[in-house]
Design a protein around this nucleic acid. Structure first.
Length: 416
RNA sequence: GGGGAGAUUCCCGAGUGGUCAAAGGGGGCAGACUGUAAAUCUGUUGGCACAGCCUUCGUAGGUUCAAAUCCUACUCUCCCCA
């Protein structure tokens, strides 16, 4: 999307420059509205899991930029809509979650967002659509809201294309009405005039915008962000274990750091712009390797994002551990994932296969055997090339065993 | 409600009585090359007490010396008609 930026609202310009803007319902109109004063806007997020992952965060990075520019931001926890499940762009229906599970997820997600955005209750706060959706009366809802939706039109939305091939149930088909109603409700309660979200939300956002125009006769705005993919075409945020979750119990700060440290070169500038708050020109210099090389840029990206999500202390520890393990001596490597083993086992000696199998590096002995057979297993820089190798206390260095699988997966084993 | 097709290992997808832990592709992992990048080439990819055994081909039973493959019932999915 190319637009003149000279006369555009400053906050929007920031988003534009940083690559956030994918589609806008009326960019000029929005720019004028934002010039006139604070605009109240929202992002919705359904608590279908206990933790957000990085893919959820793009709209929240944008939200934070807009908040810092003086606008009023609402994070909508979709405990109500999570009971239905958004079919947009999905191949299959989501499995139904219990209400209790959804509410628990909602709480933990809200606290993750609080840490990132910093809700003050006035210029930044959360809302929960359960508060108005859960008690809706079906007949009234159909008469007041349903009347404004054309099935013909809904079926033409891109978001439903896949599902029309594989199957779409009525409950999911209603999702768009509920999300539209959320927008209307937020407009009525808080004067919310703008909804932002991932580009897969475009259809739902436009529908909400049209509902408000019909019911309230007011123009509101919608803005979407690109779905971030990696240079190699894969969806970003995927790790061996699944998505790149923010919960440190699910993805340790070290693993989180390593994820960013290992992105493809071509993605660096783009990710610096979207996932950090460093000045634009610095992002570009780092991304082009003009500040100590491309790898220094990746390390900076990793440190910045880890700091934003896990805090400075964890980011420092993760960086120190990464440096220690990839060559540097004498650095703190406590952030590398670890586990203890009874000291007696080590005195007796433990087969290398078993040692690897009990770490996160290998999920079974078979896998450990394969790893060793292929020459990918190291203990304190000694390559294990014999399946029968016994590792005992004499292998210890600095009181621990540093296991390495392949070139970049590390794990510490500590006698206790 | 009637008719038809289907459910296979992480995913897609072959397989229609033994030679099937199950082709091929994708993804993952490892090796080489590098920069903790990409691309490329090679190998590998259910578990274990590992020349053997166990678990896996929607679920539950059955036929058979032998079943992912045959039979029965059930569950779910898709398509066509109403």
């Amino acid at each position: 999307m190319q637009h003149r930026t000279d006369d555009m609202n400053a906050a929007l310009q920031v988003l534009q420059e940083r690559g956030f803007i994918q589609q806008c319902t009326d960019l000029d109109g929005l720019s004028r509205a934002m010039d006139q004063g604070p605009v109240t806007l929202y992002v919705g997020c359904d608590p279908t899991g206990s933790s957000l992952h990085i893919g959820h965060m793009v709209p929240f990075f944008a939200l934070r930029h807009l908040h810092e520019a003086g606008h009023v931001v609402i994070a909508l926890i979709g405990a109500g809509t999570a009971r239905i499940g958004d079919p947009s762009g999905k191949t299959e229906a989501r499995k139904m979650l219990s209400y209790e599970q959804i509410d628990r997820n909602g709480l933990s997600i809200a606290s993750q967002l609080d840490r990132f955005i910093g809700f003050d209750g006035r210029t930044a706060f959360t809302a929960n659509n359960k508060d108005w959706l859960a008690s809706l009366n079906y007949i009234d809802f159909l008469r007041d809201i349903g009347i404004h939706f054309s099935v013909n039109r809904m079926l033409s939305f891109e978001a439903y294309k896949k599902r029309l091939e594989t199957g779409l149930t009525f409950i999911e088909f209603n999702y768009q009405l509920l999300q539209s109603y959320d927008f209307l409700e937020l407009y009525r309660r808080y004067g919310c005039r703008m909804q932002i979200g991932g580009d897969d939300q475009w259809g739902n956002i436009v529908a909400g915008m049209e509902l408000i125009r019909r019911v309230e006769g007011v123009e509101v705005f919608g803005l979407t962000f690109p779905l971030v993919t990696m240079a190699d075409g894969s969806k970003m945020g995927k790790t061996e274990k699944g998505a790149l979750f923010l919960d440190p119990e699910m993805v340790s700060p070290y693993e989180f750091f390593q994820y960013w440290r290992n992105i493809p070169d071509q993605d660096l500038t783009r990710f610096l712009l979207m996932f950090t708050f460093l000045p634009v020109d610095q992002c570009r210099r780092l991304g082009e390797g003009k500040e100590g090389g491309i790898n220094a840029g990746k390390e900076r990206l990793a440190h910045e994002v880890t700091r934003l999500i896990h805090g400075l202390e964890e980011a420092d520890k993760a960086r120190a551990a990464a440096r220690a393990v990839f060559g540097g001596e004498g650095m703190d490597r406590t952030a590398v994932p670890s586990r203890g083993i009874p000291a007696v086992d080590l005195t007796k000696g433990i087969p290398a296969v078993e040692l690897f199998a009990m770490t996160d590096l290998c999920s079974s002995k078979g896998e450990a055997r394969r790893l060793i057979g292929q020459g990918g297993a190291m203990v304190n820089d000694r390559r294990i090339d014999d399946l029968e190798t016994l590792v005992d206390a004499s292998w210890l260095r600095e009181g621990e065993l540093l296991l390495k699988a392949g070139k970049k997966r590390f794990f510490r084993v500590l006698p206790e």
